Simulated scan of single mutants.
Amino acid sequence: MKIAFIGVGAMGAAIVPHLVANGHEVSAWARRPEAVAGLAGVAPLASPAQAFTGHDVVITMLADDAAVRAVLLDSGALASATGDPVHVVMSTVSPALVAEMQPLHRQAGVAYVAAPVFGVPAVAARAELNILAAGAEEAVRRVQPLFDAIGRKTWRLGDDPVRAAIAKIAGNMMITMAIESMAEAATLTESYGLPAADFLEVLTQTLFACPSYQRYGRNIAERRYEPGFRLALGLKDALLAGDAAKARGVDLPGAAVVRDRLQHAVRAGRADQDWSALAEVGRRST
Rank of each mutant, 00 (worst) to 15 (best):
Gly109Met: 01
Pro253Met: 10
Pro195Ile: 07
Thr286Glu: 07
Met182Cys: 08
Glu222Phe: 01
Arg267Thr: 03
Ala4Cys: 04
Lys236Ala: 02
Phe199Ser: 08
Ala255Gln: 13
Gly135Gln: 14
Thr92Trp: 15
Arg218Leu: 15
Ala139Asp: 12
Arg223Gly: 04
Leu146Met: 06
Ala127His: 02
Arg163His: 14
Leu235Trp: 10
Ile59Arg: 08
Leu262Ala: 12
Lys246Trp: 00
Val36Arg: 07
Gly269Glu: 15
Ala81Pro: 01
Arg248Ile: 01
Glu100Thr: 14
Leu78Asn: 11
Ala185Phe: 02
Arg224Val: 11
Lys168Cys: 10
Ala279Tyr: 09
Met173Thr: 09
Gln102Thr: 14
Tyr225Val: 09
Ser91Tyr: 07
Gly242Asp: 00
Asp160Tyr: 07
Glu201Gly: 10
Val281Ile: 15
Pro253Lys: 05
Val266Asp: 09
Phe208Leu: 11
Gly228Leu: 00
Val16Pro: 01
Arg31Ala: 01
Ser47Cys: 07
Pro253Val: 14
Ala186Gly: 06
Gln144Thr: 10
Ala124Trp: 08
Gln214Ser: 00
Phe208Ala: 13
Asp272Cys: 04
Asp198Gly: 04
Gly217Ala: 10
Ile6His: 10
Ile6Leu: 15
Ala265Glu: 05
Val281Leu: 08
Ala43Asn: 09
Glu128His: 06
Thr187Trp: 07
Ala30Pro: 02
Ala124Val: 04
Leu235Cys: 07
Gly9Cys: 09
Leu132Pro: 02
Val89His: 12
Ala43Cys: 01
Glu184Met: 11
Thr204Ala: 11
Gly41His: 12
Tyr225Glu: 04
Ala46Val: 05
Val89Ile: 14
Arg163Met: 11
Lys2Asn: 04
Val266Gln: 05
Ile15Trp: 07
Arg31Ser: 08
Ala209Ile: 01
Ala81Trp: 13
Arg270Gly: 10
Ala197Ser: 02
Leu200Tyr: 05
Val113Pro: 08
Tyr216Val: 02
Ala265Arg: 04
Gly12Asp: 11
Asn219Asp: 15
Ala63Cys: 02
Arg218Asp: 15
Ala43Val: 10
Gly38Arg: 10
Asp64Asn: 15
Ala4Leu: 08
Arg32Ser: 15
Tyr112Gly: 03
Ala164Gln: 11
Phe147Gln: 00
Gly83Ile: 01
Val162Pro: 03
Ser75Asp: 12
Gly41Asp: 03
Ala268Thr: 04
Tyr192Leu: 10
Glu226Gly: 11
Arg215Asn: 14
Leu239Trp: 02
Asp237Pro: 03
Asp243Ile: 01
Gln263Arg: 01
Ser276Ala: 14
Val88Ala: 14
